[in-house]
Write a protein that binds this DNA or RNA. Sequence first.
DNA 1: TTATCATACTGGTCTTACCACGATCAGACC
DNA 2: GGTCTGATCGTGGTAAGACCAGTATGATAA
Lengths: 246, 246
Amino acid sequence: MELKRSAEGEKGFEKVFAFLRERLLAGSLKPGDRLISERELASLLGVSRPIVREALRALTVLGIVEIRDRIGTVVTRPDVSVLNDFFTFALAQQADMLDDVMQARVAIECQAIRLACERANIADFERLQRALAKIGETIDEADAGGMADFDFHRAIVVASHSETLTVLHSSMAGLLTHSHRSRRELVQAFPSMKTYLIDDHRRIFEAVIARDPERADATLRKHFAIGDEYRRRAVVGDIDKTSASG
Amino acid sequence: MELKRSAEGEKGFEKVFAFLRERLLAGSLKPGDRLISERELASLLGVSRPIVREALRALTVLGIVEIRDRIGTVVTRPDVSVLNDFFTFALAQQADMLDDVMQARVAIECQAIRLACERANIADFERLQRALAKIGETIDEADAGGMADFDFHRAIVVASHSETLTVLHSSMAGLLTHSHRSRRELVQAFPSMKTYLIDDHRRIFEAVIARDPERADATLRKHFAIGDEYRRRAVVGDIDKTSASG
DNA sequence: TTATCATACTGGTCTTACCACGATCAGACC
DNA sequence: GGTCTGATCGTGGTAAGACCAGTATGATAA
């Protein structure tokens, strides 16, 4: 009983969580490792099994460990789903967050495309090219078109070879997929969007090929701005077909 | 046939979690609301209290609810700590992620400063000015200097008035604080860093004041690039300072 | 009316116990 | 001797009941 006070009032759950976090952060617990059993952990830290399970469950939702039924608890590589969950909940309670998330997406992609200009390899180029072609093929389809659009943008982020940027971008994917689709549905309303979508993405692609970060960033940024403009026009019902691109 | 098992194999925890998620996503549970007690929830869903606590704990680490001792469980506004925890763990298991996180930070800040140029108000300007002054005052102190540096950058993000960008930036704060400090420790080694730090931040400030997104972005980006350069030089030993006691 | 206190909550935790299944190894069979 | 089989043990998954320590609230006493 007296050993419990290992760290100033840590209250059971905190104790277990801190214990595991320590090992995980210190690196003594690495992905693939199997934790000791819940019972051992419980007796080791002087807490009950339910408390241990609370801590393990907490680490599970954080994507740090995975509880395998009748097998044990193993450390996993950090997973994106946490961020997905978070954004899902966050968005549900703050609908106005969508614009915010969009801003974050722009941030991530514009940085990613700069890195992509430096780091992209042949495979990345090919993936981008395929995505670009797909955009042209599916220009008249809302669903497939939105998918192709998203794939292209994801290819940019992947080409940055930055795990963190990819993770962040993916975490917003769920939310933005909807955005992509609704944008695609505007194609029928704005014929000029076809050229906008195709030409813009082609210009972006070319900038990456040219390995010109500034141009790529600027082009991508303008691409987003024009997309916003279209959406704005759709909202106010200002249906026309002027210019585009630019 | 039993109602308990009618929920398509949902295994207790999943059942509770799904139940709460449903309410949270549907909006019937909003921030500030107090959930029913654990005991009620348990009997309502036909599970035991420890299971309910697992689910509540899961929501807690996701920053969705807050369990208040002897008060109850209340729904909170989405909190940053989730992302903090995630990035902390993720980084611990992938040390090479630090550079990646830095890239993400650059992404967030460069986007934030663009928004700040549009949205910043007087209070934001004042906060930036104070942070700028602080940087000058603490130029010779590693700890306080690093703090002032970070405060300035945080002020930029805050001035963007974007919740998501702020959240993301904050989530990387913990990791990057260390980076800031070590960078500050280079000041003694590179006297030229003093002018770099002061002048750069002043130029960034001025660009925001001028509400010039392009210039602000470019200046901030250059600021980061120069910082990288200093760090690179320090790594290759292009200096000869008190190499010990680092 | 006010102040005090008993009581019925709340969450926080522990304990014990059972289940179903995977892993393992001993023994039986080939 | 080698292989297959099966019982046992350990694992996670869960239930039920109990206790503690505070809080909130109401009733009672001043």
